[in-house]
Nucleic acid binder design. Structure first.
Length: 580
RNA sequence: GCGCCGGUGGUCUAGUGGUAGGACCUGAGCCUUCCAAGCUCAUGGCCCGGGUUCAAAUCCCGGCCGGCGCACCA
């Protein structure tokens, strides 16, 4: 039985994740987190928030999952999704129909993607385009649209299309002008979002790994590319397992264990910002329970880079021998903000003040409209525009008595004195710049899946095989199980009191008084509860209990009144079980 | 989307053209002074639709779902 099969079985039996609406036969690519899974996911998210929002001083927002078409035109997703696919009936290979048409030597078509499908199909017939894999004639084969975004309609009718976001990032980018305002227009600043995203995947696979609705945790860090440097000193000694593009190409290539400082120095990681995030993220993965022996950072190969990214690294975890992308670290440059500025007409930049105001000589014009109007009639407006342009590009042209500009294809000569030409001294205190974006983008479901797979352990206790999830106490759905040794003699009553006391202290508690004590321990082991408290006869007299640790099954005796503090410290990583 | 394989209680599984057993789990009770012990009882199942047949969970077709491979993955 593979690791994935084992995990799916446990997940269903114990309530981590199940196929959605299984009673109705289910639909591929949709999963519901059960009670244990939802708690685990929430803990992983809150650890993420603690790491990337709270501790880094970033903002968090929550945007809608549906936005109008223009947003995705700007982001490039709409084009990216409207791929035209043609499938070869001979070899079964699928190809981008628009690319085949453009690549055909007889064809003059440059942007086949913009053509209607029947036209593209026609081109296949006109030019006898063949399958690049096997050479089969593709004429007559249907060209089909490929759409990975879920489409919907906003309001009644179909005139106002909307799309479910394929990534949470765009919800941040579109609000940049306001967000910059909230950051007091000071770079750098980071905006995070944890939320659902949707992709109509052709072939959902491997439980939570490739699904159609999933949770992303994304951080968009807006920086001044000229001056902002990450605090690399914080992570310079962190050792990263790097699988560079070069190593992937090499025959005997493999993961190199090198420090952040070395990786930057040797140019393996091009962006200091990416290096910084790889550094701080390693500690995050360790914290939530990713096994560092089954983890690596893999650099994208040149051909693999997204349209917006210059350098990109993925965090990958190993399950069943496969490497699964759990995070993408991308340097997106100014791609997104520039596009949204173009499409929205709003300004997606910040004003950057110079250290010292700069005084420049700026040629300006202030034309005498009382002269230009009557003289040139309807051409006057265009002439003014041309004069302004000329003043900026070639102020020397105004040195004579007359200046000549071309407007609407005709040359006009104007006396310089009527142009109001002047060299003004202008003091500029700064300039508008478009920030660059550094984006760590985490797949929450894939991290949940990884953490479960990596936590899955079996051992032997008193000759019996035991299954347990070695989850970090912080991530575990339940922190402590509370049991009476027997369900009699007042033990259960005392145990319920203790359970309530611990709940009051903010701990996640499960109470269980059924069957034998060993069975209850096993139950908690399987859902990864790190500690179990048992109330026995001595508890009634001495006010002490046994605390049992999941991974070792070791037990210690502690006073009841110390439990809330001790267990909280164990959960938060401020203490270890051995210390008591 | 294509190909191969599969689908029996919550889980794992046995099974035959005559409508199904087991184990574990779960619940009730007994027992039990720290690691899935034992006893009694109980709940719960043939993925969906069509066809063949006197009769289909079983054979055939289609669908859905899952696994693997291919393709796709902005």
């Amino acid at each position: 039985m593979s690791e994935g099969d084992r995990l799916t079985e446990l997940a269903k039996r114990r309530g981590f994740f199940i196929q959605t609406a299984g009673s109705y036969g289910g639909v591929a690519g949709f999963y519901t987190y059960g009670p244990e899974g939802a708690a685990l996911k929430a803990n992983i998210e809150s650890a993420w928030r603690d790491r990337y929002v709270t501790r880094e001083g970033n903002m968090e927002i929550s945007a809608p999952t549906i936005m109008q078409e223009e947003v995705f035109e700007a982001s490039g997703h709409l084009d990216g999704f409207d791929d035209m696919i043609i499938e070869c009936p001979e070899c079964g290979e699928s190809h981008r129909a628009d690319h085949l048409v453009e690549d055909d030597p007889d064809s003059t078509v440059e942007d086949a993607e913009a053509l209607p499908i029947p036209d593209v199909e026609g081109l296949f017939e006109d030019h006898d385009i063949t399958c690049p894999t096997c050479g089969w004639e593709l004429a007559g084969e249907p060209v089909e649209e490929f759409n990975l975004m879920f489409e919907t309609n906003i309001g009644p009718g179909s005139s106002d299309p909307g799309y479910l976001r394929p990534e949470t990032a765009q919800g941040i980018f579109v609000e940049f002008p306001q967000l910059a305002e909230y950051a007091r227009n000071q770079l750098p600043f980071g905006v995070a979002q944890i939320g659902r995203a949707y992709r109509n995947e052709i072939s959902p696979r491997k439980a939570l790994v490739r699904v159609r609705e999933f949770t992303q945790a994304e951080l968009e860090h807006f920086i001044d590319p000229e001056t902002d440097e990450p605090p690399l000193w914080r992570v310079e000694d962190v050792v990263l397992p790097l699988y560079s593009a070069e190593q992937q190409d090499a025959d005997d290539g493999g993961v190199q264990e090198i420090t952040v400082a070395e990786a930057v120095e040797e140019g393996i990681i091009q962006s200091d910002w990416i290096a910084f995030y790889l550094g701080i993220s390693k500690a995050y993965y360790e914290r939530i329970g990713v096994d560092m022996d089954r983890f690596r950072y893999r650099q994208h190969l040149p051909g693999e880079l997204a349209h917006y990214a210059s350098d990109c690294w993925d965090a990958e975890s190993e399950i069943d021998g496969d490497w699964i992308e759990i995070t993408g670290f991308a340097y997106r440059g100014d791609y997104d903000l520039v596009k949204h500025e173009q499409y929205s007409g709003e300004e997606y930049s910040v004003f950057k003040q110079y250290d010292e105001p700069v005084t420049v000589e700026k040629p300006t014009v202030d034309p005498d409209m009382g002269y230009l109007g009557p003289e040139f009639g309807s051409a006057a407006g265009e002439i003014v525009t041309e004069l302004e342009r000329l003043a900026a590009s070639d102020p020397d042209a105004f040195e004579g008595d007359e200046v000549t500009v071309e407007a609407d294809g005709e040359a006009y000569t104007i006396p310089v004195e009527k142009t109001g030409f002047e060299i003004e001294e202008v003091t500029e205190s700064g300039e508008h710049i478009t920030p660059h974006v550094v984006e760590p983008s985490f797949g929450v479901g894939r991290m949940v899946y990884t953490v479960l797979a990596h936590a899955y352990e079996t051992d032997e206790v008193d000759g019996e095989e035991r299954t347990y999830l070695s989850l970090p106490p912080e991530a575990a759905p339940t922190t402590v199980g509370v049991f009476p040794l027997m369900d009699k003699d007042g033990l259960a009553e005392r145990a319920k009191e203790v359970a309530n006391q611990l709940r009051e202290a903010g701990l996640e508690v499960t109470y269980d008084d059924s069957g034998a004590i060993g069975r209850r321990y096993r139950r908690q082991d399987e859902v990864g509860t790190p500690f179990c408290v048992t109330i026995d006869y001595d508890s009634l007299e001495e006010e002490t209990v046994t605390v049992r640790e999941r991974d070792t099954t070791a037990q210690k005796r502690l006073p009841i009144d110390e439990l809330p503090g001790t267990l909280s410290a164990l959960r938060d990583g401020d203490a270890t079980f051995d210390e008591f």
